[in-house]
């Protein structure tokens, strides 16, 4: 098991958002996390990554407790996070973004950079372009590339399709599958686009008002006629 959350309680100040959330991610699998706006999905990812403090409960990564540990240390251990709304440095070039992606591992590894350009060839041609001037889809590819520079064992992805045209949603989610297949990276994917998420995930957790309301195989959920009533 690569990640385990045990009875997590967390929130913003006095406002509790997560009321005892438990989940697990096995090495190399894609796990979906779906639910309505405000269900606490983004908060959960931020807590798992160490951006938000935990009030109660435990986070274990690769068998060791990492509850409340600084993101910089999590990143060194192969835990990466791509936040909502394109996790990139908009003022820096594509090349500089990728270099910074590998910052905590030392100098940028040219082989890794080449592998990312190979995965997203469009970025190669735009490597000296300021990232903020890329299209939405290209920015999302760069965000994935930036996270991949850290050679993650587990990628926490927060709504990678947000704000993208349907054709780009398909392309970005295909990239997630490709990353999983090519690098063996496990993925915990928060996605509003439920059907698309169910198509690429193995297992799925459904979140409702700060709690996990259901865990199931993605394929089984897809076949359920009452899918939309589960949220």
């Amino acid at each position: 098991m690569i990640l385990e959350a045990l009875d997590l309680v967390a929130g913003y100040g006095k406002k509790e958002v997560l009321h005892g959330v438990s989940l697990r991610v096995e090495a190399g699998e894609i796990v979906g996390l779906i639910g309505h706006n405000g269900a606490g999905k983004t908060t959960l990812l931020r807590v798992l990554f160490g951006l938000l403090p935990v009030q109660r409960g435990e986070v274990r990564y690769a068998g060791r407790p990492i509850t409340g540990r600084r993101p910089a240390l999590n990143v060194k251990d192969g835990l990466s996070f791509v936040p909502q709304g394109h996790g990139i440095f908009t003022d820096l070039t594509v090349r500089e973004n990728l270099e910074l992606g590998g910052h905590s591992l030392g100098e940028a590894d040219p082989d890794r950079v080449a592998a990312i350009y190979n995965l997203f060839p469009i970025l190669m041609g735009r490597r000296d372009q300021r990232a903020g001037t890329l299209s939405g889809g290209q920015q999302q590819m760069l965000a994935l590339g930036l996270a991949l520079m850290l050679r993650p064992k587990l990628l926490l992805l927060d709504e990678p399709s947000l704000g993208l045209a349907p054709i780009l949603v398909q392309r970005v989610l295909e990239s997630v599958v490709e990353i999983n297949r090519r690098f063996g990276t496990a993925v915990l994917l928060v996605e509003q686009n439920v059907k698309q998420a169910l198509r690429i995930a193995g297992r799925v957790y459904v979140m409702k008002v700060g709690q996990i309301s259901l865990e199931d195989q993605a394929a089984s959920l897809l076949e359920r006629s009452d899918l939309w009533q589960l949220f």
Partner: peptide, 17 residues
């Protein structure tokens, strides 16, 4: 570059370590 990254987005800088 790390300084420019923090200036651009402190949270993203933290996210990449």
């Amino acid at each position: 570059k790390a300084i420019r990254a923090v200036a651009n987005s402190p949270e993203m800088a933290e996210i990449v370590g």
